[in-house]
């Protein structure tokens, strides 16, 4: 799966989780999205795990700072 496909799928997931149209880009982080709190972060992670059929580790989830890092992780796993 290439980056473009990952971003396209993530755009759908973000819209679904945050119930809003969100322009997903590598710099996007929790402070840019209303409602991206610790609870919705885990909901987002779980939805991504199911969509891409991958699993993140505790340390990976703790270190994520923006969508760019998330995409790099998905790319390495998917």
């Amino acid at each position: 799966m290439d980056e473009q496909q990952i971003y396209a799928r993530l755009t759908e997931i973000f819209s679904d989780v945050f119930d809003d149209d969100i322009q997903v880009n590598p710099e996007l982080s929790a402070k840019d999205v209303d409602g991206w709190d610790s609870l919705s972060h885990i909901r987002l992670i779980l939805t991504i795990e199911r969509a891409f059929k991958i699993k993140f580790s505790t340390s990976e989830i703790g270190k994520l700072e923006n969508v760019g890092q998330l995409v790099a992780l998905i790319k390495a796993r998917a």
């Binding site: 610790s38 609870l39 779980l46 989830i61 703790g62």
Partner: peptide
């Protein structure tokens, strides 16, 4: 707080939501 979020809150919530 960040340590507890990374190693208690996140894994516990993830496990429950799974």
């Amino acid at each position: 707080s960040s340590w507890f979020k990374s190693y208690v809150y996140n894994p516990l919530l993830l496990a429950l939501m799974r």
